[in-house]
Design a protein around this nucleic acid. Structure first.
Lengths: 254, 254
DNA sequence: TCTTGAAAGTGACGTAACGTCATTTTATAT
DNA sequence: ATATAAAATGACGTTACGTCACTTTCAAGA
């Protein structure tokens, strides 16, 4: 029979917790001193460890009581439920993570958070999971999985998305100078390079990608970073210009 | 001015929630009828949507009040904190998931759960946690997560700084491929272009700039965000390589 | 205008798992 | 015997509302 303090030393739980467990009847002391101090034995220690373990699996005290109470309780289905629950919670958190990252990207790009973009974010983050899969299936069929990994998703924080955002910011900065400006053309070149790296020469995929980008709705459905129409059109024109120039140069050289 | 029921119809929140927000002062009605019924206007509806959005990011009502209250509140650091929090929670859940799966396996295998195995499981998962952290720290932390730590320095809203960060992130991503890799060389070209645009050919200034970047302390003093030594050295070497190659090409062409 | 049913109002308790006082009693070492 | 540490009890606080229970107001029909 050991004192409550010994228990806390050996197991790391607090005195308050022991009292709590006593109160809710989850773990009652083996005995008491004349003065009413709680005393615990080996059996209680073991049960306490069990409780702690179950807690680390995320079970509530109520469920734990059920499980440790009934000897022949159906542990397995409890575990299954718990697993499902955990997975659900994780999904929720993942969604949150995506949203937060999306907002952060937006913030980085525009320096502020405006509700219109946020509406978009909310809108498709709600329908995202569903629509995105559906969309990718009919749109890209075979390459679906590839694309899924490749697409610079709005919500991801990877270096590629970052650079897309950066490049678009650059475009916006230099837009006033027109599509022929050196700065603009350099950015375009970089964009094309990235495009190439991303799709590794798979032209169909690349075309599909830009097709999607041209349409706000499709973009949203695919979970891509929403680009303003104006910027997008500018990029297209500048790209055309870049490609014709490049053709000329190559033509001249050969 | 619309009634509380209209609000619930349009936004999906419950009446109780509206009352709650009123009570804690998060969202007070625009006015009341003679009888004391709450009335809301457009402004309140917008704020309510903001609140719902922030909630979907997992912020507490208290934090939301701070954020919607102060106009010039530092949103970005709030988002960052939130992201860290979310990631932590996700990690916890992942641990749980693994533990639960472990127990289920054990159960399937032996038809029971005994504490000895469980002890092992706990021990194991603790160790793994430790090792993972260690691993993440010494490994260059898989850029992804680090990027968002990096961004605040960038968040001056300056598109150029943003692109610098993006380019360095790209360098880190491709570093393992060596200085001669196409991807690396392209990035280097872009870096040199930006360098040129920035200093307009003033070589002294450019040199000074990179000198500063080489020193952690000076960097910070100058308000630049510090670049890791390894990355910096890599950039230098890759740049050398790029320049010699370019010289060769020019030599061959002329 | 009166009636009436729906809508809205105001408390107040419950939730999960303890943390954190404040106050009183018991155990233990000197 | 006394001082001090340890324990006990009780009660409030935390989060974001859900859920009664009971009263008052609103809007429309008779």
């Amino acid at each position: 029979m050991i004192s409550i303090k010994e228990v806390t030393k050996q197991t790391g739980v607090t005195v308050r917790t022991m009292r709590h467990y006593d109160q809710i009847g989850l773990l009652t002391p083996a005995g008491k001193t004349e003065g009413g101090h709680r005393l615990y034995g080996e059996k209680e220690l073991k049960k306490l460890q069990e409780i702690q373990f179950l807690k680390s699996l995320g079970f509530s005290l109520k469920k734990i009581e059920e499980m440790t109470g009934n000897v022949d309780h159906d542990w397995y289905s409890g575990l299954q439920r718990q697993l499902n629950y955990i997975i659900q919670e994780k999904e929720k958190l993942t969604e949150m993570e995506q949203m937060v990252k999306g907002v952060m990207n937006q913030f980085t790009l525009e320096g502020k958070v405006d509700m219109q973009h946020i509406q978009q974010l909310i809108h498709f983050s709600q329908q995202n999971k569903f629509k995105r899969e559906e969309f990718l299936q009919q749109q890209f069929k075979e390459d679906k999985e590839k694309l899924f990994d490749l697409l610079p998703n709005v919500n991801s924080g990877d270096p590629d998305t970052l650079e897309w955002v950066a490049l678009l910011a650059q475009i916006k900065k230099h837009m006033a100078k027109g599509i022929e400006a050196v700065e603009v053309q350099r950015i375009i070149r970089r964009i094309l390079e990235k495009d190439q790296e991303l799709f590794a020469g798979n032209e169909e995929l690349s075309n599909a990608f830009w097709e999607v980008r041209k349409s706000q709705e499709k973009s949203q459905a695919a979970g891509l970073y929403p680009i303003e129409q104006g910027v997008l059109e500018f990029v297209e024109k500048a790209t055309e210009y870049y490609l014709t120039k490049e053709a000329e140069n190559l033509g001249g050289e050969s």
